[in-house]
Simulated assay, not measured.
Amino acid sequence: MPVGDVARLRAFALVAELGSVSAAADVLGYTQSAVSQQLAGLERDTGVPLIDRAQRPLRPTVAGAALLPHAQRVLAAVVGIEGALDDLHSGRRMIRLAAFTSALSSFVPAAVRDLRRANPGLVVRVLQVETREAIDRLRRGEADLAVVHHMPGVAVPDTAGLRRRHLLDDHLSIVLPGRHRLARLDAVRIADLEGEPLILPRRDTPAGRFRAVVEQLCAEAGFTPTVAYELDDLPAVQAFAAAGIGIVPMHGLTLGTVPAGAVTRPLADRPAGSRRIEALLPAGADRLVEQIAERLVVSSRQHARRSRSSGDGAPEDRGRVRA
């Protein structure tokens, strides 16, 4: 059965995502009446209601929910075609890479550098976003490749229709004041943190998922963590540890900036708390996207090897003072 033109699919997808005809009209630059007409036309084409107009915000019907991911894939392909044509007319090629912060501060730059050396004139646009937004942008055709992380015990966003490339497993470490008793150990157990003043992110932030992981690990070890400070900024958190007033569980990719006065120790309970780092590609990724995915595999493995040889990627004994 026909499903109408791209304009109708775009109007439907925006109404379904934003929950409002007026919000979709604002994005598209149309009148509300025009968006309603596009939506009604698509419903005539399919022969079924696609939006439940009896509730606010608007939500897709069962049929609409079934159609939505297909519409999003079509729209992403259209955006990709438009971008490719723009590149052809301008004589340049651009790759849009979406990635989370600690990947951008660790292994991603080397992959971008190597890709640009192999493809002079290539423009790499980097989008600093968290996993869920990176996947959404990939589906909407606003990114060509995404580097994402999956926390243990946290629901993985839907990646159906995308190709997944495993890059590395990012293990938990513990950042300690250099004079702390636990700094004498080669590895720290979750149980060792009972009663210690921990620094964790706030619950109502993107990093709140990490806090939930730490709290779950502590609960499994039989205790409730003592949260001395709630801080989200990684350098600030590490500075508090270096000052001797708190202990910080952190993933390995975030340890490149540990300051003097702090030390890191691996978590003895591995793989507890480890997160999986992946590259996500569209099913029909082109040659350049495949190339940067391969370079991400290489650079992430190199980073992992350096981390193992230097103690989770940070100079463990920098600033260490023996008691």
Score class of each variant (00 low, 15 high):
residue 117 R to V: 07
residue 167 L to P: 14
residue 114 D to A: 09
residue 157 P to K: 15
residue 182 L to M: 09
residue 184 R to T: 10
residue 147 V to S: 00
residue 189 R to K: 13
residue 178 G to C: 07
residue 176 L to P: 00
residue 130 E to Q: 12
residue 180 H to T: 07
residue 155 A to D: 03
residue 182 L to A: 06
residue 156 V to D: 10
residue 99 A to G: 09
residue 171 H to D: 11
residue 141 G to V: 08
residue 117 R to L: 14
residue 97 L to G: 03
residue 183 A to R: 03
residue 200 L to Q: 06
residue 137 R to K: 11
residue 102 S to K: 01
residue 157 P to I: 14
residue 165 R to F: 10
residue 172 L to Q: 12
residue 153 G to Y: 06
residue 89 H to V: 08
residue 133 E to C: 00
residue 93 R to Y: 02
residue 182 L to N: 07
residue 102 S to A: 11
residue 142 E to F: 07
residue 187 A to L: 04
residue 152 P to G: 02
residue 168 L to H: 09
residue 125 R to H: 15
residue 118 A to C: 02
residue 183 A to K: 05
residue 106 S to I: 02
residue 192 D to K: 04
residue 112 V to H: 13
residue 185 L to Q: 14
residue 94 M to D: 06
residue 133 E to H: 11
residue 97 L to V: 12
residue 132 R to H: 04
residue 140 R to C: 06
residue 166 H to R: 15
residue 90 S to K: 15
residue 200 L to S: 06
residue 145 L to W: 07
residue 172 L to G: 11
residue 179 R to M: 05
residue 134 A to H: 14
residue 131 T to N: 10
residue 118 A to F: 02
residue 92 R to K: 10
residue 102 S to L: 02
residue 141 G to W: 03
residue 169 D to K: 14
residue 188 V to S: 08
residue 197 P to V: 12
residue 160 A to W: 07
residue 125 R to I: 03
residue 198 L to H: 04
residue 137 R to I: 00
residue 122 L to N: 11
residue 132 R to K: 04
residue 188 V to T: 09
residue 188 V to C: 09
residue 184 R to C: 01
residue 197 P to L: 11
residue 89 H to A: 09
residue 99 A to Q: 10
residue 96 R to G: 02
residue 107 F to C: 13
residue 95 I to R: 14
residue 117 R to D: 13
residue 139 R to N: 00
residue 122 L to V: 11
residue 189 R to L: 09
residue 135 I to M: 02
residue 113 R to V: 08
residue 177 P to I: 05
residue 142 E to C: 06
residue 147 V to K: 01
residue 196 E to L: 15
residue 158 D to P: 06
residue 92 R to W: 05
residue 147 V to W: 01
residue 126 V to H: 00
residue 136 D to W: 01
residue 146 A to Y: 10
residue 199 I to H: 04
residue 148 V to G: 06
residue 134 A to G: 12
residue 158 D to R: 05
residue 130 E to S: 11
residue 194 E to L: 07
residue 123 V to K: 08
residue 155 A to N: 02
residue 95 I to L: 15
residue 147 V to N: 00
residue 169 D to L: 14
residue 106 S to W: 12
residue 162 L to K: 11
residue 154 V to L: 12
residue 192 D to I: 02
residue 199 I to C: 08
residue 129 V to P: 06
residue 175 V to D: 01
residue 180 H to N: 12
residue 151 M to W: 06
residue 129 V to K: 15
residue 104 L to T: 01
residue 106 S to Y: 11
residue 138 L to K: 03
residue 166 H to L: 08
residue 157 P to R: 15
residue 161 G to W: 14
residue 167 L to Q: 08
residue 185 L to M: 09
residue 106 S to C: 03
residue 172 L to K: 04
residue 138 L to A: 02
